[in-house]
Structures are given as structure tokens and as C-alpha cells.
Amino acid sequence: MELLLEPFGYQYMVKAIWVSALVGGVCAFLSCYLMLKGWSLMGDALAHAIVPGVALAYLLKVPYAAGAFFSGLLAALAMALVRVRTQLREDAVIGIVFTTFFAVGLLIVSINPTSVNVQSIVLGNILGISDEDVIQVAIIAFVSLTILLLRWKDLMLVFFDENQARAVGLSPTRLKILFFVLLSACTVAALQTVGACLVIAMVVTPGATAYLLTDRFGRLIAIAVAMGVTTSAVGAYASYFLDGSTGGLIVVFQTALFLLAFLFAPKHGRLGARRAARVGGAA
């Protein structure tokens, strides 16, 4: 028992747990939208596209989050622009833009070798997060969560049916930009917890899991956020004992939940579907 409570005795662990939970929650919220549009890889792309921003920020001695945010946003807008102007498919557009950004980032880092610890970007370093970074991440997450809670229905309508959004007087373009701004900001926040390689899981898996469990968007968000918060907190907590990477553990827990849903979800899961077919056949 004492052993189980041990992590809470260390400030850095407590910090890691609640910051991870917060970030996990917002990313899960965003995942509900991304997954439905087939934009899931966007989160991955953004996480890599952020590297040049971070490198430049170190170079110019401006806050690291600001640089990351602007290069993420730039990448998102570049993807949107290429998508609209050409008939290229999403995956190609995302691939081109994010590798370009990542390459520029590596170039900057290689010219100024001491400026950035690339490994902490790629793998995340929540256990060693500085108080300044905690404040940055917390502000990003709280602001994003508030905006999402206020506007989730409008965003849902834009993602479901742009014409109807227009017919009720909304501006789809403005709302989409809002969404990508939030996504860029949250990707920056997620980088700190799980690192660039695993951001993709944070912005895909919770939404995908919830999709198997419900047919209503409101519940989809609730389930995804609950899952994001829990897995992230538990992941951070467990990393104390396993001495493993926090990001890795969080994603492993998320994947485990996804597998459970995949097998046992009442309607869309494998076993559930089979049972329904049997019941339907017998009736």
C-alpha cells in the first residue's frame, strides 16, 4: 500500500501525473474531430513540423512554445492551402509538408548543435518538465478546453455538413482555422508529455476507441476525454514503477483500451456484432 502511494510523495511525479492527464484530455477531445475527417495523421505531421519552430526559438531566445506553435500553425495552413489548390490526396499533402518542416528543423539543429535537445522533443520528457513549461502547458490546455467546451457543437456541424453550417449562419472557414490553431497549440503541449513520435496516438486512439462505443457525438467526446485523462494519468503514475518512458506507457494503455473496445463493444465490437447478428437471426 505504501509502495503504491509512493509516487505521490514526489513533487515531480504529482506534476507529471496531472499535466499528463490534462494534456491527454484535450488531445482526446481533438481526436474526436480528426478521426472523423480522415485527418488523423495531421497530429503526427504537426508534431514533426514543430521542430524548426523550436530550433529557431532556442536560437532567437524566445519562448520555446511560441516558436513551436507558430511553426505548427504555419504547417497546418500550408497543408490546408496545398489541399485546396491541388487535387492531391490528404496523405500526400501531409507527407510533403511535414517532411519539409522536419527537414528544415534538423538542418537548423545540425547547424547549431548545442541549441536543442532533439531527443526530448522526439521522446518527450514529462518527468523532468520545468515549472515554466508546466505553466505554459497548463494555460494552453485550459484555454483550449474552454473553447472546445463552448464551441464543440459548431465544430461538429462544420465537420459533418459545411453547407448546413453556412445555412445556420456559421463561417466554416473561421471555425476550421480555430480548430487548427487549437490543434497546433495542443500538439505543442503533447510534445512535452509523450514526444513527437507518440503525439499521433494521443490525437487518434481515444476518439477511435469511443467511436466503437457510441453513436452520439456528445458521448463520443465524453468517452474519449475520460479515456485520455485516465490513461495519461495512469501512464505517468506507472512510469514511476516501471522506470519506463511515460509516453510509451500512456500509449500502451490507450491501445489496450482500444483493443478491449474492438473486441467487446456492444454494437461495433467484434463479439458484440456477432452476438447481434445471432440474436437478429434468431428473432
Binding site: D154, L157, F160, V168, L170, R216
Partner: peptide, 25 residues
């Protein structure tokens, strides 16, 4: 606006009720 069937994402997690409610936004 009543869209052409091809324009709608039928896999979107919304119920009939939710769709009709979108008209009230």
C-alpha cells in the same frame, strides 16, 4: 438546404434527432 445523398458522411456518429436539431442551431 437538403443535400444530395453523396454529400453526406453516413458514418458520422450522429442520431436522426441530432441531425434534425442541427437545423435549429
Amino acid at each position: 438546404y437538403v443535400p444530395q445523398a453523396e454529400e453526406v458522411d453516413w458514418t458520422f456518429p450522429v442520431l436522426v434527432d441530432d441531425v434534425v436539431m442541427m437545423g435549429r442551431y
